[in-house]
């Protein structure tokens, strides 16, 4: 059974349809990369998965459970909503670390508030996560004292601390200086090696080619082409061909 099924997701903002029926499935342990030009709806799709936005139509099914159904007009309670969000993690383009907390506190804040274990367990896990993103020595620093690449690695550790089933990345390196993208992509690669289920929106084509099990090319609110990494070498649609020549 697929870990995630997305069925006919549609979303409009003030009468402009931004997602025009998105369908795909994702297997556990796989990496799905979403590419497409700016404005094609990639961020909106991730936001719908993370319940930051609500689709007008369609279904989102995690582990066989329908967590979102556009037909169901009953508003979700605050706790249902929070449960739905916990299936997913989201790493933002702009990191969004909490500035008033140290690196370690950024990671432990949510697990502590949601009673995910004892203080000692949570801190031990957070330190392990920091180790895995290569930032153990920065645990007591504040976000303003870190480079963008370091902040994004902390943001990844923070998302992982809630043990999401599926971790989403929205252009995780787009806000970084070119020399800092490598360290973030390396961390994401290491997660792929550990069979973390991920959905990654990125413009890093080489990385997308290497890390993905599956690729989706979005264009103007629809999936214009999908397949394995080879679609980057042999695109069948003209739109993907045109998109790839822009790199």
């Amino acid at each position: 059974m697929a870990i995630l099924e997305v069925k006919d997701i549609r979303k409009s903002f003030d009468n402009t349809e931004v997602l025009k029926g998105i369908d795909f499935t994702l297997e556990e342990g796989q990496v799905l990369t979403i590419i497409g030009s700016s404005g094609s709806g990639k961020t909106t799709l991730l936001r719908c998965l993370n319940s930051l936005e609500f689709a007008d139509k369609g279904q989102i099914i995690v582990d066989g459970n329908v967590i979102f159904d556009g037909e169901n007009t009953k508003r979700l309670s605050e706790s249902e909503l929070r449960n739905n969000r916990l299936h997913f993690g989201l790493v933002f383009q702009s990191f969004n670390l909490f500035p008033q907390y140290s690196v370690l506190e950024n990671i432990t804040l949510a697990p502590k508030l949601l009673n995910k274990g004892t203080k000692e367990e949570i801190e031990k896990e957070a330190l392990e996560l920091l180790e895995s993103v290569g930032l153990s020595e920065k645990k007591d620093n504040y976000p303003c004292e870190l480079s963008g690449g370091q902040q994004q690695r902390v943001a990844i550790a923070r998302a992982l601390a809630m043990k999401p089933r599926i971790l989403c990345f929205d252009e995780p390196t787009s806000a970084l200086d070119p020399e800092l993208t490598g360290e973030v992509l390396k961390v994401i690669r290491s997660l792929a090696d550990k069979r973390m289920t991920m959905i990654i929106v990125t413009h890093e084509m080489t990385f997308a080619h290497d890390v993905s099990d599956k690729l989706i090319f979005m264009d103007n609110g629809v999936i214009a082409e999908e397949g394995g990494p080879d679609i980057l070498e042999n695109p069948s649609s003209d739109r993907l061909k045109a998109f790839l020549t822009s790199f």
Partner: peptide, 18 residues
């Protein structure tokens, strides 16, 4: 306060008052 701060809290499963 950037909206991203609130959203970062939301995706971590925190409640409005948290």
């Amino acid at each position: 306060v950037p909206i991203g701060q609130q959203e970062a809290g939301q995706v971590l499963g925190l409640s409005k008052s948290q």
